[in-house]
Design a protein around this nucleic acid. Structure first.
Length: 597
RNA sequence: GGCUCUGUAGCUCAACUGGAUAGAGCACCUCACUACGGAUGAGGAGGUUUGGGGUUCGAAUCCCUACAGGGUCACCA
C-alpha cells in the first residue's frame, strides 16, 4: 500500500536520483514499501529496478542514493543498505507533524464528498420466493461496504437493487396460497411475510412433485407428466392472467409481494443496509423487449422460425444467446438489458455501474456487457460485475432440500444472543439499561458476522462452519471493538481533547510508536486501494493490523500514566488517532464501535 | 469437453500486485500480569506455497504443463 508520506518520498527519490545519476527514472521504477521489522528504518526504496539506469550494482547505487537523500532532505535522518534495499529512517519531527495532520481531521482517510464521479452499486436483489440466507448476507454486507468505501473515496454513490417480482415462480406461491392457505396472512399467523410466502413456494414444489410422480406411475414420460401437472397448469394460467392485467390476480400479486417486502425490509434493517432506489423487473422487462426488437430491426440480432430472438456471439468465443422467447415473453437477459440502459437514463451523471452478484453469473454478465456494446450503447464499457465466491458449509453447498440452508434472520439472532451471553458473563456493563445492552449485543454480534464475511477477499469462496460458529476473539470485530473501547476509555479518563494536544517536535518515537503512526498515515491510501479494487478486505485487514499493534503497544507503554508531558501527549495523540482511524475503517464495513463493552 | 475461478501451517485466512528469512487467528505447548479496561500480551512448535518445467538480479505471485476442487456453457431467475 502507498503511504501518505510516500508521495513526498517518491518525488524526493526521483529528484535526488536525477541529480545524482543524471537520469530520471519513470514513476513505475520507484518502489517504496514499509521496512520489515527486522531491519533498521521506516521506509524502504527498492533499488534493483534502478540499478541499470544508475549504471552501478544495486548496493552501490543504493549507497549513493541514500547518502544524497539524507544530505538533501531534512526529514530523512539516516539510511542503511541491505543488498539492493535502501532503508530510510524518518525524523521524529516528520512523524509528529503528520500525526497532527491526522488528528486535525475527524474524517481521516475520507476524500471530499462528491469529488469523484457518481457510481451506482447494485446488491442484494434476492428472489422473492425464498427467505434471505447466509449467501445473501455476504452479498448485502459486501455491496453495502463497497458503497461506503466508494463514498469514502469521494464518489457520489447510488445504492440500488433490482427486485425480481414477475414470472412463473411468483405465480407458484400464489397458486399454492390460494389452494392451501385458508386466507392466512402475516398478521394472522405472526410469521414474517417472506417466510410465509417462502413456505407456500415450497408447498407448491411438493404438490407439483407429487403430481409428476403420480403421472409417471400412470405411465407418462417425466416431461409429459410435468406439463400435465394440474397445479403447474394453474400456475401458467395465472401468469397469463397476470400479463393480461387481470385485476384479481394483480391484486393478489401485490398483496403477497407486499408481505415479502415487509419481511425483507425487516431483515435489511436488522443487517443495517439501505437502498436509495429500487428497480422492479415488472417495470423494466417491457423496456428490455423494446431494445431487443430494436436490435433485431437493426440487424444486430436474428430471429428463428419460431419467432424467438437471439444474438450470435460465436465471433466473440461465446455461444448464441436467447433474448426473447417465441411467444414474445421476456427472459432474464431481456430485463437486464432494459434495466442497465434505464439506469443510465435515470442518472445522467452516472460514470459507472457495479453489480454485486455471485460468481455463478459471470457468464451472464459477460454476455450482457457484450450485448450492450453491440447495441451501440454509449455506456457499455462502464459496467462492472463485482463477483464474489460462494459461502460454503463443511457439508458443501447449502441445499434447501437437505435443510442445510443457514437462514439470515436466525443467524443474526444467534450472533446477538452469543454476544449478549459473553457480555453478561464479563459483567462490565451491568449498569446498562436493557435497551443499551440490546444495542451492544447487536453491535458486537452483527459486527463479528460482518467482519467474518468481509475480511475475506470477495473473489474467494469461503468456508462457514455453523457448529463452531463465529469467533469473538482473535482476528475479529469484537477484538477490534474492545481495543477501540479501551482507547476511548483512556482518553475519557485522561480528560483531554485530542485535537488540542501539544508536544515537542523533538519527542522521540520508538519502534512501536512509529508502527502506530505509520498505520494511521497509511489509512487514506488503503481506502483508495479498497475503492479501486472493490475490496473491503484490505480495509478489514488494515484495521486489524493497526489495532493489534496498538494492543501490543499498550502492554508496555504507559499512556495517561506517563510522567513526561511531551511523551504523554504524543501517546494520547496516537491513541486518539488509532481510535479514529480504526473507527472510520470499521464504519466502511458497516460495523459500529461502542463506547463501552 | 470449452471457457472461467481457485489450490499457501492440522483448520480459517494474509502476503503492499515480481522484492528481503511466506505472516496472522483458531487449536496445541510454555511464560507474564490484581491491569491507564484481561474480550490481554510475549514466546514455542507447525511450510518443498498441489507436482514438474520455464522467464530473471529475485517467483506464492508471470508463462507452459500435469493434477485436484468450485462455477458456468437453460426458451430458470
Amino acid at each position: 500500500m502507498i503511504h501518505v508520506l510516500d508521495s513526498r518520498l517518491h518525488d524526493a527519490v526521483l529528484d535526488t536520483f536525477e541529480a545524482t545519476f543524471g537520469k530520471r527514472p519513470s514513476d513505475a521504477q520507484i518502489q517504496i514499501q514499509s521496512t520489515r521489522a527486522e531491519f533498521e528504518g521506516d521506509r524502504t526504496v527498492v533499488v534493483f529496478p534502478l540499478a541499470g539506469l544508475a549504471g552501478a550494482p544495486p548496493h552501490v547505487a543504493a549507497e549513493k542514493l541514500g547518502e544524497a537523500l539524507v544530505a538533501s532532505q531534512d526529514w530523512i535522518s539516516a539510511y542503511s543498505v541491505v543488498k539492493g534495499f535502501l532503508n530510510l529512517t524518518l525524523t521524529d519531527a516528520s512523524w509528529s507533524e503528520t500525526l497532527r495532520e491526522a488528528l486535525a481531521s475527524p474524517a481521516w482517510g475520507f476524500a471530499t464528498p462528491g469529488s469523484q464521479p457518481q457510481v451506482m452499486v447494485e446488491y442484494s436483489s434476492p428472489n422473492t420466493n425464498k427467505p434471505l440466507h447466509l449467501g445473501h448476507l455476504r452479498n448485502n454486507f459486501l455491496g453495502y461496504s463497497v458503497s461506503r468505501i466508494l463514498e469514502a473515496a469521494g464518489h457520489d454513490v447510488v445504492k440500488v437493487q433490482i427486485i425480481n417480482d414477475r414470472g412463473i415462480h411468483i405465480c407458484k406461491s400464489m397458486v399454492a396460497w390460494q389452494k392451501l392457505g385458508n386466507g392466512e396472512t402475516p398478521a394472522t399467523t405472526g410469521e414474517k411475510g417472506d417466510k410465509l410466502v417462502g413456505r407456500y413456494y415450497v408447498a407448491f414444489d411438493k404438490a407439483f412433485k407429487a403430481e409428476v410422480a403420480e403421472g409417471v406411475a400412470r405411465g407418462l414420460e417425466p416431461k409429459e407428466a410435468e406439463s400435465a401437472s394440474p397445479i403447474m397448469q394453474e400456475a401458467r394460467a395465472m401468469l397469463q392472467r397476470w400479463e393480461d392485467g387481470d385485476t384479481e390476480v394483480v391484486e393478489l400479486w401485490k398483496t403477497m409481494n407486499g408481505w415479502v417486502y415487509d419481511g425483507f425490509n425487516a431483515t435489511y434493517n436488522d443487517m443495517g443496509v439501505r437502498f436509495d432506489k429500487l428497480y422492479y423487473e415488472s417495470d423494466t422487462y417491457l423496456l428490455g423487449k423494446k431494445h431487443v426488437e430494436d436490435g433485431l430491426s437493426r440487424g444486430i440480432f436474428f430471429q428463428k422460425e419460431d419467432g424467438s430472438i437471439w444474438v450470435d456471439l460465436t465471433d466473440d468465443g461465446l455461444d448464441e444467446k436467447l433474448l426473447l422467447r417465441g411467444d414474445g415473453t421476456a427472459v432474464y437477459m431481456t430485463q437486464d438489458i432494459g434495466t442497465a440502459i434505464l439506469r443510465f437514463d435515470d442518472f445522467a451523471g452516472l460514470d459507472r455501474q457495479v453489480y454485486t452478484v455471485g460468481n455463478e453469473q459471470e457468464y451472464h454478465f459477460k454476455v450482457l456487457f457484450l450485448i450492450l456494446k453491440k447495441l451501440g450503447f454509449a455506456q457499455a464499457d462502464k459496467n462492472h460485475h463485482l463477483s464474489y465466491g460462494m459461502v460454503e458449509l463443511p457439508e458443501g453447498k447449502m441445499k434447501s432440500r437437505e435443510g442445510t440452508v443457514v437462514d439470515a434472520d436466525d443467524l443474526l439472532l444467534e450472533m446477538r444472543t452469543t454476544a449478549r451471553a459473553i457480555s453478561d458473563e464479563l459483567g462490565k456493563v451491568d449498569d446498562f439499561a436493557e435497551v443499551e445492552k440490546a444495542l451492544l449485543a447487536r453491535q458486537v454480534g452483527h459486527g463479528a458476522l460482518k467482519y467474518f464475511l468481509l475480511k475475506v477477499a470477495p473473489a474467494k469462496s469461503m468456508m462457514f462452519d455453523p457448529k463452531s460458529s463465529i469467533d469473538f476473539f482473535g482476528n475479529t470485530a469484537p477484538f477490534i471493538q474492545f481495543n477501540v473501547v479501551r482507547c476511548k476509555s483512556i482518553l475519557r479518563s485522561a480528560e483531554v481533547d485530542a485535537s488540542t494536544l501539544t508536544w515537542s517536535n523533538d519527542t522521540t518515537l520508538d519502534d512501536a510508536e512509529r508502527t502506530l503512526a505509520a498505520g494511521v498515515l497509511a489509512f487514506p491510501s488503503v481506502v483508495r486501494e479498497a475503492a479501486a479494487t472493490y475490496d473491503p478486505s484490505v480495509v478489514a485487514n488494515h484495521c486489524y493490523d493497526l489495532i493489534k499493534a496498538f494492543s501490543s503497544f499498550y502492554q508496555d507503554h504507559p499512556i495517561a500514566k506517563e510522567e513526561n508531558a511531551d511523551v504523554r501527549n504524543l501517546r494520547l495523540a496516537l491513541c486518539a488517532a488509532v481510535s479514529t482511524t480504526v473507527s472510520n475503517g470499521m464504519s466502511l464495513l458497516g460495523i459500529d464501535m461502542p463506547e463501552r463493552m
